[in-house]
Amino acid sequence: MPPRPLRAGILLSRNPIVTKEPSAFVKAFYHYQDELERRLMWTFPWYFYFKRGTLSQRKFDSLQKGPMPRHKGVYYPEGIPDVKHNRERRSKQVVNLPSQSGDGEGDKIIPQSRTTQADEKKDVRSLERKLDSTLYLVINNKEWRLPSFEVSEEATSLHEAAEAGLRELGGSNINTWTVSSTPAAVIKGEVPEFVIKSHILHGQFTPKDFDFAWLTKEEIKEKVKPEYFSSVEALL
């Protein structure tokens, strides 16, 4: 009796590169917690970083805006100052550090945008799109689906068959890492398809004669047939 035919699928993913854009609520939560932590922080030990009597200490001192002193018989509309060790204890301590770069502009760290050129062009073939979410490789071989390959009788293991098939389709200029030789799922059908999980580390997937895309879970849902999506949804 001949062996039952099998297919080896590959779930090739590009892991998120940056953190998710926080929602307005999450941002507000982090802001509140951060301000609270700064409020509860110890007083900045300037004497540890700026030696007494040095030029650097004088520079540091000139930048500090001291707290409002407390005097008897004075009405304070914003509350009575609570000063200890030259620090207002009712609020966070603001420490102004001398500029490292001279003009003060070089000290600022400005993060780059989460959206890239590929996002603006809507280039679904680029690996540099949607940096904050996992992208999965889908190909359009007659219909949109995850890449899958026939397992020949000579093949020794499923994951080797899947990796070899991927290079046959998209060229050898790709560096991937198979997560496990254990399949992540099996898609039942006439010919059962065992899905091997893998990450792309470097290189490009460049097939010759059909279309492909790197898509997020939500985009895959729109692209593939509903019955196919329901079979792979739990994987993504």
Binding site: N15, P16, T19, Q33, S180, T182, K197
Partner: peptide, 26 residues
């Protein structure tokens, strides 16, 4: 009391996004 979560945590997100499911399969 000291606040525990004061900013986004890259390592935690990496664990949830990638490491957890990979470790389970491995």
């Amino acid at each position: 009391y000291r606040p525990q979560r004061t900013c986004q945590d890259r390592v935690r997100e990496h664990h949830i996004n990638t490491v957890e499911s990979d470790m389970m399969l491995i």
